[in-house]
Design a protein around this nucleic acid. Structure first.
Lengths: 106, 106
DNA sequence: TTAATATTTGGTAATTTAGCCAAATGTTTG
DNA sequence: CAAACATTTGGCTAAATTACCAAATATTAA
């Protein structure tokens, strides 16, 4: 694996990592239904607003979402919506795991 | 968000996290072309074999891959192949980022 | 222009992850 | 059975991540 390829895999991993946190994943799912302002997340998530801001920043750095300041508020929206198409498959993994668990018990 | 939902998002994040590492991502891509034994990864990846084994273990714990011991060797294969369908989209994110970068320079 | 509101940024402590080495386990071969 | 081989596990350290608080910044409203 040469340096260029290595960079590519690091870049891909960064995108996945940006989604690989429960709170960020939830936010990304909300955003795929339409833009939201930071204040809405602050109302709905039980975490410090600075934490929420930083989570959004991680997704922004990864290029998954983009922000738009309007007045006092900052609105975020998905930049590459296909990202969420993946979730059906992630759920399939979880179901598969659940079945395996169930099989252990039965 | 109730406890059950919280668990779900944690489970989803775990699956993503298992892919969110350059080495693991590379291994997952190899495995989507067919099963491989640990020794093949050891030959191709510049890391200690124990590190490689642990990366595979992370993906196994997440339910992405499964292993099969045959003789002295352990073979891994994808358990839920759709996982890799996502990569086209991840690449789209990276291209989008690259374009944004290019726009800054031009 | 001061105060209030929304958000980001800096600092720090706690937790998690990554990677190496050494040791343990399981399997085959001599 | 002993030696060789493939892999996993335990232990350790360094690095990265997370979350909180406090402070800074920007915008609007009084």
């Amino acid at each position: 694996m040469n340096a260029k390829e290595k960079n590519l895999y690091e870049a891909k991993a960064k995108v996945l990592k940006a989604l690989a946190h429960p709170t960020r994943l939830w936010m990304a799912e909300q955003l795929s239904a339409g833009e939201m302002c930071v204040c809405e997340f602050v109302d709905q998530i039980d975490a410090d607003f600075s934490t929420i801001s930083k989570h959004l920043s991680v997704m922004k750095q990864a290029g998954i979402v983009e922000d738009d300041k309007r007045g006092k508020q900052v609105y975020y929206k998905m930049k590459v919506p296909c990202v969420m198409n993946f979730m059906g498959c992630v759920e399939a993994v979880i179901e598969s795991n659940a079945k395996a668990q169930a099989a252990l018990v039965s």
